[in-house]
Lab assay of single mutants.
Amino acid sequence: MIINNLKLIREKKKISQSELAALLEVSRQTINGIEKNKYNPSLQLALKIAYYLNTPLEDIFQ
Score class of each variant (00 low, 15 high):
31 I>F: 03
44 Q>N: 13
27 S>E: 06
50 A>K: 02
33 G>T: 09
59 D>R: 07
24 L>E: 00
40 N>P: 11
62 Q>C: 11
54 N>T: 08
57 L>G: 03
47 L>I: 11
58 E>V: 08
18 S>G: 12
60 I>V: 07
53 L>I: 04
16 S>H: 04
10 R>A: 02
25 E>F: 09
6 L>V: 09
58 E>D: 10
38 K>G: 06
20 L>K: 02
29 Q>W: 12
21 A>K: 01
42 S>K: 08
22 A>N: 11
33 G>E: 15
35 E>D: 03
62 Q>H: 10
19 E>D: 10
39 Y>E: 08
35 E>P: 01
22 A>D: 11
45 L>I: 07
43 L>A: 12
11 E>G: 05
36 K>N: 15
11 E>R: 09
60 I>W: 03
55 T>Y: 05
39 Y>W: 11
53 L>S: 01
41 P>V: 08
44 Q>E: 14
37 N>H: 14
4 N>V: 06
37 N>L: 09
44 Q>H: 11
7 K>N: 04
14 K>G: 15
30 T>L: 15
8 L>H: 11
41 P>F: 07
22 A>F: 08
56 P>C: 06
43 L>Y: 12
28 R>F: 10
28 R>T: 15
35 E>H: 03
10 R>L: 04
40 N>C: 15
1 M>F: 13
41 P>E: 03
20 L>A: 00
61 F>G: 02
38 K>A: 08
52 Y>C: 09
56 P>W: 05
2 I>E: 07
44 Q>D: 14
51 Y>V: 07
12 K>G: 09
27 S>Y: 03
60 I>K: 01
36 K>H: 13
51 Y>Q: 11
51 Y>F: 12
44 Q>K: 11
27 S>W: 03
44 Q>C: 14
54 N>R: 08
10 R>S: 02
45 L>P: 00
6 L>H: 00
1 M>K: 10
26 V>R: 01
47 L>P: 00
15 I>V: 09
38 K>M: 14
35 E>R: 01
61 F>P: 01
44 Q>F: 10
49 I>F: 03
23 L>K: 13
34 I>H: 02
55 T>G: 02
50 A>G: 05
53 L>C: 04
23 L>E: 07
60 I>C: 03
12 K>M: 13
22 A>T: 13
30 T>Q: 07
38 K>L: 15
40 N>H: 13
1 M>V: 13
49 I>C: 02
17 Q>F: 03
52 Y>L: 11
43 L>K: 13
25 E>T: 08
39 Y>S: 09
48 K>W: 05
26 V>C: 08
18 S>K: 12
26 V>P: 01
20 L>F: 07
48 K>Q: 08
7 K>A: 12
62 Q>V: 14
51 Y>W: 11
37 N>R: 11
32 N>Y: 09
9 I>F: 10
5 N>E: 04
3 I>E: 09
49 I>A: 02
4 N>T: 05
29 Q>T: 11
47 L>H: 09
58 E>F: 09
46 A>S: 08
31 I>Y: 07
17 Q>R: 09
31 I>K: 04
62 Q>D: 09
56 P>F: 05
34 I>V: 05
55 T>V: 14
29 Q>L: 10
11 E>L: 09
17 Q>S: 06
1 M>N: 12
12 K>D: 09
19 E>I: 06
39 Y>F: 14
4 N>A: 04
62 Q>I: 11
22 A>H: 11
15 I>Q: 04
52 Y>W: 10
35 E>T: 03
48 K>M: 08
21 A>C: 04
54 N>I: 04
8 L>A: 15
18 S>L: 10
2 I>Y: 13
27 S>I: 03
47 L>W: 08
45 L>D: 03
22 A>W: 07
57 L>F: 10
8 L>Q: 14
60 I>S: 02
43 L>S: 08
48 K>C: 07
57 L>P: 05
39 Y>G: 04
6 L>P: 00
38 K>P: 04
26 V>N: 01
55 T>L: 06
8 L>S: 13
61 F>I: 04
41 P>I: 08
55 T>N: 02
12 K>T: 11
30 T>D: 05
36 K>L: 13
8 L>P: 08
58 E>S: 11
41 P>D: 03
32 N>M: 14
18 S>I: 11
21 A>G: 05
39 Y>M: 10
6 L>K: 00
55 T>S: 06
9 I>Y: 11
3 I>D: 08
28 R>I: 15
19 E>H: 11
11 E>P: 02
43 L>C: 15
5 N>K: 07
52 Y>P: 00
51 Y>M: 12
51 Y>P: 01
2 I>C: 15
32 N>W: 12
48 K>D: 04
21 A>M: 03
39 Y>I: 15
19 E>A: 12
10 R>W: 03
1 M>Q: 10
29 Q>D: 15
6 L>Y: 00
41 P>A: 06
36 K>G: 09
11 E>K: 09
25 E>D: 12
15 I>M: 15
42 S>G: 11
37 N>G: 15
8 L>D: 13
59 D>C: 14
62 Q>F: 13
38 K>Q: 12
53 L>K: 01
42 S>W: 04
33 G>R: 15
22 A>C: 12
4 N>D: 02
55 T>C: 08
52 Y>E: 05
9 I>D: 01
41 P>K: 01
17 Q>K: 07
27 S>P: 14
51 Y>H: 12
49 I>L: 07
5 N>Y: 07
